[in-house]
């Protein structure tokens, strides 16, 4: 292949494609359009996506985006687009620094916005850095001290982003007493809770529980205690009456977690797994065992 000819062809292609793409939009143009009569939210979203966030226009772009996100007269879809683009700007840490305090204040205000999607987006953003104001709002909502700003399962998920574990007592209660997605999320939120190891063991082994719930319990147990998980995983894999999805997940966890493999994998176990591959009808289990065999041989 003629590499230089390829390069020239590529340069030509870039020119053609750039010419066909919508031109970058200036922040002034966005602000002007937002202030105009007959503005359209979809058009605002398109303009926001075409902001270059480059060196020359970064500050004015961020200013325009903050104003749009705070403007309750603008539709939620456009305010959400502005929030997303502000998130993009955050990736230029040094340039974004001077706006950071105002941005956090805005997000805290939007956390109680009338629109649930705007509220959720603001809380999503704030909890990524464990913002204490957002965590308190969520905790109050879950304990019915304050308004529930988002559905309970979402609140648990966001509250669990606090690495300090201050909400662990709430999660422990919900993991045993709640139902459906709230219970699942509470169980996930206990991922690093050593005190919950007996609960994880019980749930992972209980065939009366939903497979999804048992899987979460098993992964949590692997996380906090590989030796305890090893015992559970061994039983899951070798029990012919067990759910195939769980068995596949257990084989996969054994394969990819050395601390578990060293407790479980013996010649006898590998031979049993090989037999299982020959007899199971589950494609997932077969492929998990295939990966296991590549690492540990076939007994």
């Amino acid at each position: 292949m003629d590499i230089e000819a390829l390069r020239q062809q590529y340069l030509q292609q870039l020119q053609t494609e750039e010419a066909a793409a919508p031109p970058p939009v200036t922040p002034e143009a966005v602000a002007q359009y937002v202030a105009s009569d007959g503005r359209d939210d979809v058009k605002i979203c398109q303009m926001i996506a075409s902001l270059p966030l480059d060196r020359e226009t970064f500050e004015t772009s961020v200013r325009a985006l903050l104003d749009i996100a705070a403007d309750k007269s603008v539709g939620a879809v456009a305010r959400l687009a502005a929030l997303r683009q502000l998130g993009s700007a955050e990736f230029r840490a040094a340039r974004f620094g001077p706006f950071h305090a105002e941005y956090i204040d805005l997000l805290r205000t939007l956390a109680t916005d009338e629109d649930v999607e705007v509220r959720t987006a603001a809380l999503e953003r704030l909890t990524l850095t464990a913002d204490p104001h957002a965590l308190k709002l969520l905790s109050d909502g879950l304990q019915k001290v304050g308004d529930a700003l988002v559905p309970a399962a979402k609140a648990v998920q966001l509250l669990a982003r606090d690495d300090h574990g201050s909400a662990l007592p709430i999660f422990r209660t919900l993991a045993t007493e709640a139902k459906g997605q709230v219970r699942e999320e509470a169980l996930r939120a206990l991922a690093t809770d050593v005190k919950s190891a007996p609960l994880f063991e019980r749930l992972a082994a209980n065939k009366d529980e939903k497979t999804a719930l048992r899987h979460i319990a098993a992964v949590n147990l692997k996380n906090i205690s590989p030796p305890r998980f090893a015992k559970v995983a061994r039983k899951l894999v070798l029990d012919e009456n067990e759910d195939d999805k769980l068995r596949a997940a257990a084989v996969s966890a054994i394969t990819h977690t050395p601390a578990v493999a060293e407790k479980v994998v013996t010649r006898r176990f590998a031979t049993a797994v090989k037999k299982l591959r020959a007899t199971t009808r589950s494609g997932a289990l077969k492929s998990s065992i295939g990966r296991f065999s590549k690492v540990f041989g076939e007994g």
Partner: peptide, 17 residues
Amino acid sequence: FSAGHPLLGWVAFGAAG
């Protein structure tokens, strides 16, 4: 993920999934 997927046991920052 699909059943048996290698990343089903993904753990980061102590959080599963």
